[in-house]
């Protein structure tokens, strides 16, 4: 089932880059932000810490701080302003909830 929020309209000939989402191997395109890489295949970037459901960012310009995700070996990063790099291991869910 396609869960994606974002849909690509152009620029689809860029090289593919491999990374993992909650340990699942996936691919996105060189030049994607982490947020684009995630939301072209997943329905959210994180769960609200207040239990009110999933969140997927809002402003895409580094202002709202809604899009922080965990990178294994690195810590929390803001997905909308972080470029995707090969081999990144992204955690959308907290470890114990896996």
């Amino acid at each position: 089932m396609n869960q994606a929020i974002f849909t690509r309209l152009a620029e689809t000939g860029r090289p593919r880059i491999a990374f993992t989402l909650d340990s699942r191997p996936v691919e996105a395109l060189a030049g994607d932000t982490l947020l684009t890489a995630i939301l072209t295949q997943a329905a959210s970037v994180r769960e609200s810490e207040f239990g009110d459901g999933p969140r997927a960012g809002l402003c895409l310009m580094g202002a709202c701080q809604e899009c922080w995700v965990m990178l294994d070996g690195h810590g929390p990063v803001r997905a909308c302003t972080t470029p995707l790099e090969a081999g990144m291991a992204v955690r959308l869910r907290r470890r114990h909830a896996d």
Partner: peptide, 17 residues
């Protein structure tokens, strides 16, 4: 998303929200 965010998605990432 915000209007500006939706525009950034299109302009800098070539995606629609």
């Amino acid at each position: 998303f915000s209007l500006g965010g939706a525009q950034i998605a299109l302009k800098t990432q070539a995606v629609a929200i």
